[in-house]
Design a protein around this nucleic acid. Structure first.
Length: 556
RNA sequence: GUCCCGUUGGUCAAGUGGUGAAGACGUCGCCCUCUCACGGCGGAGUCAGGGGUUCGACUCCCCUACGGGAUACCA
């Protein structure tokens, strides 16, 4: 037995299995050659924002579009970041926005045969690989304490050297077997570090570089790693770097989609793949979704602490339709999506050929007005009855006391249908909360006269208009018949039949038919602005129309 | 500090040596119109800066500036 093998046996007395064993236990997936396997690897903090959804969407499209697999792996290697119920939040939030996992971590049981999908349940695997690296002399135990590391760091900073544990600073690199034994016997805790084979560059001898092709960014050239990074923490749990290499290999990930903040640790990962003699996956480093910081006015990446309004829950509360959010995300995910959508207005967005190459290299700013615009276009294509189900479902959760929550979806569908037919449908529905406000006047409980009566119209005229309107109202009138009556009510009182007449000779009239209809509109809806009055009346029914006119008359 | 990535109008962006530098959102004006919305037409507004290379640079090279990220026994 070599010294290294003895060391490995000393450090991992209970580890029997070798990497070869695990590689055999995780056979290559039987998929089409072009099928992509992607994964989402969140840490269970329970907070998930639009930026996470943005990245997850790329994963999902890449996998499902190619007939591959999209799975969920919970990266719970840091117990400080664990939050109760987090996994449930992650799964249900993504599910709401239409991202469904084929396999991976589940609430009760995991799905799929490449598990376990919780990293905390994979200790033995990571330790097997660590042991193998120690045996090969590519990893070693390090007993440095926090204080010692801090002291090394300050020395390095004072000498303007690169901080970290490497080269001559890696004090435990060449401990003898006896020294290790002694420390172990003393009960000292240790981590396993990579024995990096890289060299830091100097002015005379620049660091060796390697070249990797990133599916989003193209060819990348980076200096090799020289830091003895931690592989296994003192509690035996791996760092992200080590877990990533092993898990993505065993689980057959073909495309590693992750945020660009990982770009700088790519050299570490590449060295680890080489040390373990494993093939590299294809990396896709996405640009982060950004926002302008309210306080500093500076562009920065989304933060879970500072940006609660970008949490996925926020969009659910506001009642953005998942389809609208998906559509918006795609517009910033792939720059040619909008063009495609223009050419294929009726197609499902799943039909869009998503590609990693078309993804932006720089972080896009989240743009609420763009989301709203996209949402309008999406909602106008959704059938009124299905939109009504969505709206009442939302109201039941977020406004349970509102009349909307108790309303008959068929009635809500009639409301939402107003002005949606024809060549130029209204596009004023954006999100559920706004729709709730938009439709409030259809329910007596939430009906109120909010806007002032028009200035051109005296209270006496208002009364005369409403009185004449009630007297001549016939619920069975067609839209044309109805409007003719409104017009003649106006002309009888000295209002122009056409706004243009009034504009030409304002001195001849009190106002125009628009002012007359505004009086009726306010009596009916409480607002100066609304969709077509006649259509609203048809939905409301004759009884309520007369009731509201009467009520307005007495209040004037 | 060092390293990595990035930089076309307010925003998302097309664009790979010769363009009047697309398009979308927003914004402004006009038109349509019983209000609002929709729709139509039009306007303003961009290649971060400086050097090269070239007959010619948004496109290629270098430098600077700015922004983002990394520099943990966090992910």
């Amino acid at each position: 037995m070599t010294q290294q093998q003895q060391l490995a046996a000393l450090l991992f007395p209970h580890i029997e299995n070798t990497p070869a064993h695990w590689i055999k236990a995780y056979p290559k997936r039987q998929l089409d050659p072009q099928a992509k396997v992607t994964r989402l690897g969140p840490s269970p903090t329970g907070f998930i924002h639009l930026g996470n959804l943005y990245g997850a969407f790329a994963d999902e499209r890449l996998a499902h579009q190619s007939g591959g697999v999209f799975y969920l792996r919970i990266e719970d290697t840091d117990d400080k970041r664990k939050v109760e119920g987090a996994v449930e939040t992650i799964i249900s939030s993504l599910d709401f926005f239409g991202l469904h996992f084929d396999e991976g971590a589940g609430l009760t049981v995991d799905k799929g045969s490449y598990g376990p999908y919780y990293q905390s349940a994979r200790r033995e695997i990571y330790q097997s690989f660590s042991k193998a690296l120690v045996e090969k002399g590519l990893a070693y135990p390090c007993f440095l304490t926090e204080e010692e590391i801090a002291s090394i760091r300050s020395q390095q900073e004072a000498a303007k050297l690169t901080p970290g544990i490497y080269g001559k600073w890696a004090l435990c690199r060449d401990l003898s077997l006896e020294q290790v034994k002694k420390r172990l016997d003393e009960g000292q805790s240790f981590v396993i570090r990579l024995r990096s084979r890289g060299m830091e560059g100097t002015e005379n001898a620049p660091a060796k570089t390697f070249s990797v092709r990133d599916a989003i960014r193209g060819q990348l050239s980076m200096p090799e790693n020289f830091q003895d990074v931690v592989l296994l923490k003192s509690n035996g749990i791996p760092t992200y770097h080590f877990a990533h290499v092993i898990d993505d290999t065993l689980m057959g990930t073909t495309h590693v989609v992750r945020g660009e903040e990982w770009l700088s640790s790519l050299p570490v990962h590449v060295e680890l793949f080489q040390a373990l003699e494993l093939p590299l996956p294809i990396y896709c480093h996405t640009a982060q979704l950004m926002k302008i910081d309210d306080e500093t006015g500076v562009k920065r990446k989304l933060s879970k602490r500072k940006d609660p309004e970008l949490s996925l829950d926020y969009y659910r509360e506001m009642g953005y339709h998942p389809q609208a959010v998906r559509e918006y995300l795609l517009t910033i995910l792939n720059s040619d999506f909008e063009q495609w959508r223009l050419e294929n207005p009726e197609k499902e967005l799943e039909a869009f050929p998503f590609s990693a190459e078309k993804m932006s290299h720089s972080g896009a700013l989240f743009d609420l007005s763009k989301l709203n615009d996209v949402s309008k276009e999406v909602l106008v294509k959704i059938h009124a009855s299905s939109l009504a189900d969505f709206l009442t479902g939302w109201a039941k959760t977020y406004q349970p006391q509102s009349p909307l929550a108790k309303a008959d979806p068929a009635f809500v569908a009639r409301i939402l249908s107003i002005g949606r037919d024809g060549q130029k449908p209204r596009k004023d529905l954006v999100f559920a909360r706004q729709m709730a406000d938009f439709t409030a006047y259809f329910f007596d409980e939430t009906f109120a006269v909010e806007d002032p009566w028009p200035e051109n119209t005296s209270p006496e005229d208002c009364r005369s208009i409403l009185k004449a309107y009630l007297d001549t109202y016939c619920h069975g009138d067609t839209q044309e018949q109805w409007f003719d009556k409104v017009r003649s009510i106006g002309t009888d009182l000295g209002y122009a039949a056409k706004p243009k007449d009034y504009k030409k000779n304002p001195q001849d009239y009190k106002g125009h038919v628009g002012h007359v209809s505004t009086v009726i509109r306010i009596a009916l809806t409480g607002r100066a602005n609304s969709p077509d009055i006649w259509e609203i009346q048809q939905v409301l029914g004759e009884h309520k129309v007369r009731q509201r006119m009467g009520k307005a008359l007495t209040s004037l």
